[in-house]
Design a protein around this nucleic acid. Structure first.
Lengths: 334, 334
DNA sequence: CTCCTTCGTGTAATCGATTACTCGAGATCC
DNA sequence: GGATCTCGAGTAATCGATTACACGAAGGAG
């Protein structure tokens, strides 16, 4: 592989001049610039970003840690983050935590070692020492989708309360009283917030909350299935199940089908998160859509503020309730 | 941030000793080792991977370029690659090409600059100069899922011929004669291979191939929808549509629903790729499943061979035909 | 004609680690 | 007791870039 000094030798100039050409420094004569460019293409020179980063103390890289790469919500998020970052000249490196604190920490450490310029984290589970360290050391850091308590870290998140209220109103209108809920883990702010919003909405609409109707999952399909098993085995099972994310909804659906129940007639289903295939289930699944595109763009904007020394603004966006048919017609579900 | 020399000063030793501790070199006395470890934790020292990489000429990083991060096939693949790589002590950085040659090249360049130790590419479209350069320069490189002609690059891929033959046999058994096909782009080996396998299977089972039944998409949902529009507008539309990947199947399904056609009765649908939600469509979608887990593991194995100077082995795995109900019952579709 | 800018270029220090080489102290062997 | 080995540790070169600083030439002002 060619190095900068090979290019310099070939072009008959010093390495400083070559470096100036690479970095678009105007203090280079037209003639020399041409010779350098020529030498670079001849040698197929590729600048070594590792060496540059060491010297400039910047990698032009953002470390993004998502909860689960198999969750379409997070991949959509990753895509929009990547897009926005690219426009600002940054590369995104993605770490998949698999919803486990331990794997999240692995990436926090790895990214710190690799000297990413900024961290964007969808925190999994509790506050871990490694995340606290980032915050304490004042590294550019923002939380995305989820927050952690007790840390002064700017956060870009979604408030689903309005949409959840819309859902509960919808269920009340259809005459359903017995609503089962599969929450995300209590250790996650997104899980807690949704649960709280759900309970508040239930109260507001004068609906009884039975403790046995509130299950706790972990945002993965299998926990949605297991929770559904318990809900449907109750002496008086709920009429509608509201799953706290799209994967748990998938798991719930697996179990409903497995029992040969008719969706929307024997039992209803609604999901936080909207995914493209929901419209193809029969009946189509009532859902709450999150503005993933905007979420990612805002998150990058916050990081750029941090990196450029501006004051970052935590942002809260709103989710949207999308009624479809999976909760049945009025008075339909016994 | 603490540097190695700060640790050395605090522990009262030289930087060489600290470095030896970091790298588990046994030539350090127990006492000094303890002092260094103590100093490292006190200073919250994090080794600088950029500096290390510059010196050692290794980043312990694999660059993976996937076709589309919104395609569940690729995310499953990415996850398995990441898992296998991690076990071998490598970090994976993912580049999303969005199925565009230009974005793929962006990542090839970026990864080359960042000095990744090896490249794993699901090539999008044609042979581009940047990929040729990688191959010519002898960089550790393997293709995954797709190949490019004319380059001696080890490849890990799936042969779907057997599964596709199973599908066509299935369709023949059901009495269907008019089969529409939405292929991937001809510029992609995976697209070409599937088309070829499909045509061969049709011939083998004595079924007529009408040119107007063969549509070409681009592996994205919208092209599946557009192709379906054309197929269903034909004077004599096909009885069954076979989509070349899961996203085009999704698009096809969108169009079928949009026309209020009954799946499996008015028109059948089958998909290359199997995804979790297929079983929840009514009727469940007949599909061809690829062994993504194994695919990713093998790909990493090939890269490790390359990196350790062993002779890599190109591998071809087989896909599996999974009959469900979306192509109707015998003689059902007119 | 001198003095002062400005411009283009080169020399060399620097970023933070790794590691070849060196060296002294103590152990081992005959 | 002297020669040889082993062990633990330190000094300094090195990786490939960027950039402060220095310097000579050319141009402009007076």
């Amino acid at each position: 592989m060619a190095r900068i000094k090979d290019v310099a030798a070939r072009a008959g100039v010093s390495v400083a001049t070559v470096s100036r050409v690479i970095n678009d420094n105007p203090r280079v004569s037209g003639e020399n610039r041409a010779r350098v460019v020529e030498a670079m293409t001849q040698l197929r020179y590729v600048p070594n970003a590792v060496a540059r980063s060491l010297r400039t103390d910047a990698t032009k890289t953002i470390g993004l840690i998502i909860g689960d790469i198999l969750n379409p919500f997070f991949t959509a998020l990753a895509r929009s983050v990547e897009q926005a970052a690219r426009e600002a000249g940054y590369t995104v490196v993605i770490g998949n935590a698999n919803e486990r604190a331990e794997e999240q920490d692995h990436y926090v450490r790895t990214f710190a070692e690799q000297q990413v310029d900024a961290f964007l984290i969808c925190p999994t589970a509790e506050v871990t020492p490694s995340i606290t360290e980032l915050a304490v050391d004042g590294r550019p850091l923002a939380f995305l989708d989820r927050t952690l308590p007790g840390l002064a870290v700017p956060t870009v998140r979604v408030d689903g309360a309005r949409a959840i209220d819309g859902l509960v109103a919808h269920l009340a209108r259809l005459g359903h009283r017995r609503i089962g809920y599969i929450s995300g883990p209590d250790s996650l702010s997104s899980g807690r917030d949704r649960t709280e919003a759900f309970l508040a909405a239930m109260r507001r609409h004068g609906m009884e909350i039975r403790p046995e109707y509130v299950e706790t999952g972990d945002f993965q399909a299998e926990s949605g299935r297991a929770s559904t098993v318990r809900l449907l085995s109750l002496p008086e099972p709920p009429q509608v199940i509201f799953a706290g994310d799209n994967l748990m909804a998938l798991g719930a659906l697996d179990e409903i089908r497995g029992r040969d129940l008719r969706l929307g007639r024997d039992v209803g289903l609604a999901s936080y998160d909207d995914v493209p295939w929901f419209v193809h289930v029969d009946p189509p699944i009532t859902a709450i859509a999150q503005p993933t595109e905007e979420l990612g763009h805002r998150a990058v904007a916050v990081l750029l503020d941090l990196l450029d020394g501006r004051e970052p603004e935590s942002t809260t966006l709103h989710a949207q309730f999308i009624p479809r048919k999976s909760c049945g017609e009025e008075g339909e579900i016994a």
